[in-house]
Simulated assay, not measured.
Amino acid sequence: MSRHLLPTLALAGVAAAFSTDAFAHCFVGARFFPATLATDDPCVADELSLPTVSWSKTGDFPPATAWDFSGEISKRITENFGISVGQDWTSIRQADGTLTQGFQNLETTLQYQILRDREHELAILSGVIVDWGRTGSTGSGLATDYSLVTPTIYFGKGFGDLPSSFSWFRAFAVTGQVGYEIPTSSFDFTQNVFIPQQLVYGASLQYSMSYLKSEIVDLGLPDFINHLIPVIELSLSTPVANNFGNPYTTTGTVNPGVIWVGSHFQVGLEAMIPVNRASGTGVGVLGQLHLYLDDMFPSTFGQPLFGASPTTPRKMTF
């Protein structure tokens, strides 16, 4: 892991000098980037996703029904450095009634905030994701004996710095991430197949109703509407190396949905639309309850472990 982590943190250390914000949550100036469901937001934070639940049909012939239940906790070690730990439990029922269920491998993520530019509503985050081999239900086939290491860059950009003539368009924002997934083994002897290296990437387009009200124009909409962030996400994976004998097929989903943002938590719901048959069958559903630990425990768990800021965390304006 250190072979990929050290260059990433070195880059982060050089760029960190340009950081202009040190808020919990993902605030960059007036812009709030919510925790998206299929991809990650571009900020370190103190937060808890519990639960995240999805239902979908696999691309098998005939398709199987898959349920996935997961939780993830994120904690800032310093203002700009954080760690996340997550675990998934999956249940897959084949058309003939065969049931496979168990835990996937434990996932940890180290992240460093490279940039928060208030004026341009721009955030950049570096990270290294590790799925630890043999930490899940390996006997069920839902977890692997080998680990996966994925150096990743995350970004977010709000359009609030556009000229005022763009009016309502300035409430839009985009986020995204690009990672290179590297398995610690090149061949799976249990399945007798090569283990590919993959490009793992995704993006979101979102529209903040609270930003529209507070920064552009108050339309006098109901309070519930002002808490909404309509969003569409794209989450994809493409084999790029060590994929001998297998097609280089991109798989993933397009996820239109909406996030309701409160003062201490948010709730998100999205459809999961496979990009092709290899990605799944029909339309699935993804939902999440996400808790803002910095607002729930502002003087204890919601603070960085080291170098806590004396300033009050930025809050949403509705």
Rank of each mutant, 00 (worst) to 15 (best):
M1K: 14
L5G: 03
G13M: 04
F27K: 03
V28R: 04
A30K: 09
A30F: 12
P42I: 05
C43S: 05
V44K: 07
T52F: 09
S54V: 02
S54A: 12
W55I: 02
D60H: 13
A64C: 11
A66F: 15
W67T: 10
W67V: 11
S74I: 00
E79L: 06
I83V: 09
I83F: 02
D88N: 12
F103P: 11
T109K: 06
Q111G: 06
I114L: 15
I114F: 15
I124L: 00
V128Y: 09
I129M: 14
I129Y: 13
S140E: 09
K157R: 02
L162F: 15
S167A: 12
A173H: 02
Y180S: 00
P183D: 04
P183M: 04
S186Q: 10
T190W: 04
N192D: 00
Q197C: 14
Q206F: 09
Y207N: 08
S210A: 13
L212K: 04
K213F: 05
F224C: 07
H227W: 03
L228V: 06
E233Q: 08
T238I: 05
N246L: 15
T251C: 09
G257V: 11
R277C: 13
S279E: 05
G282Y: 02
V285A: 04
F301A: 00
A308F: 02
T311S: 02
T312Y: 15
K315D: 00
